[in-house]
Design a protein around this nucleic acid. Structure first.
Length: 271
DNA sequence: CAAACTCCCTGTTAGC
DNA sequence: TGCTAACAGGGAGTTT
């Protein structure tokens, strides 16, 4: 499932391929993916618009557009959820049965949104905050301080993994990088967040940033489900239950936390 | 208020 | 072999 690094890679991919491109037509094959406005409005607003800037907030892809005949701001925002991905292709190339939204572009190209599970969501809004306002701290934001992270995390008594997954606390962390950072910081996923010492949270924060940067460089994690662009990040904990810990050789354990499969090392991630 | 559960989807896998 | 049922999982919404 795409998380912060995979989304970041997608944004870079799109920026490379879509700079200056114009949307000539929009085809919506599965309406539920368009969250707001209505399907008809979505198509109408975006037709004739031009890509202006490319960014990311948490797991959201934020594309600023130049509207066709309006001075109002316009953002095309997308969330890949479980299995969504974007591709920019020649319009003559073969379509997949899971291509649910197709933006026809100038120069005989198409931006295609493919999503097997159909959980992905798109928004066309004049103010990006309408979609992004509830998001929490941006982990790779350079100005973000350790104190801010400690304050954000320490007030919860729920398990630290549950807190890491909350997008309104820290944005962009999902199941993969929650397990990875907890393993790296040697913290048990069920540790109540408020019981963590500031030093532990600092370590967790530092490891999380390291892992996210490394994963971005590696083009993300390839977990087979969604097609990311050849992700080469190799998880140390995520998805490795039953296999030996890379630090101590103990067999990694699988438990369920917040309805999510969780792998950790029972030896070096003690409660 | 937080925590737990439900729903949306379909490919994959386990079970019979 | 071929079928069905369980399962996974991000996040919004609902219930506890």
């Amino acid at each position: 499932m795409p998380e912060l690094p995979e989304v970041e890679c997608t944004v870079r991919y799109l920026e490379q391929r879509l700079r200056g491109a114009v949307i000539e037509d929009v085809h919506v094959g599965w309406s539920r993916i368009v969250n707001r406005p209505s399907k008809a409005e979505f198509v109408k607003i975006l037709t004739g618009s031009r890509f202006k800037s490319f960014s990311r907030r948490g797991k959201y892809i934020v594309l600023e557009m130049i509207a066709k005949d309006s001075d109002e701001k316009l953002f095309l925002i997308a969330h890949l959820r479980m299995s969504g991905s974007f591709d920019v292709l020649k319009n003559s190339s073969l379509r997949s049965k899971h291509d649910h939204i197709i933006f026809r572009l100038n120069r005989d190209r198409e931006l295609r949104f493919t999503d097997v599970r159909k959980f992905g969501r798109m928004y066309a809004v004049s103010d990006s905050e309408l979609v992004l306002s509830k998001l929490g701290l941006e982990p790779l934001e350079p100005q973000l301080s350790v104190k801010q992270v400690i304050d954000a995390i320490n007030r919860f008594k729920s398990p630290i993994k549950t807190v890491l997954l909350r997008q309104d606390v820290v944005a962009g962390v999902g199941n993969i990088y929650a397990d990875e950072s907890l393993w790296a910081a040697q913290i048990h996923p069920l540790t109540p967040a408020c019981k963590l010492k500031p030093q532990q949270i600092e370590k967790l924060f530092i490891e999380l940033k390291k892992i996210l940067r490394k994963a971005i460089e590696a083009n993300g994690t390839d977990n087979g489900d969604n097609v990311v662009y050849g992700g080469m990040y190799e998880p140390k904990a995520y998805g490795r239950a039953g296999q030996p810990c890379r630090r101590c050789k103990t067999t990694l354990k699988r438990i369920v936390v917040a309805q999510r499969g969780t792998s950790f090392c029972p030896n070096c991630q003690k409660r």
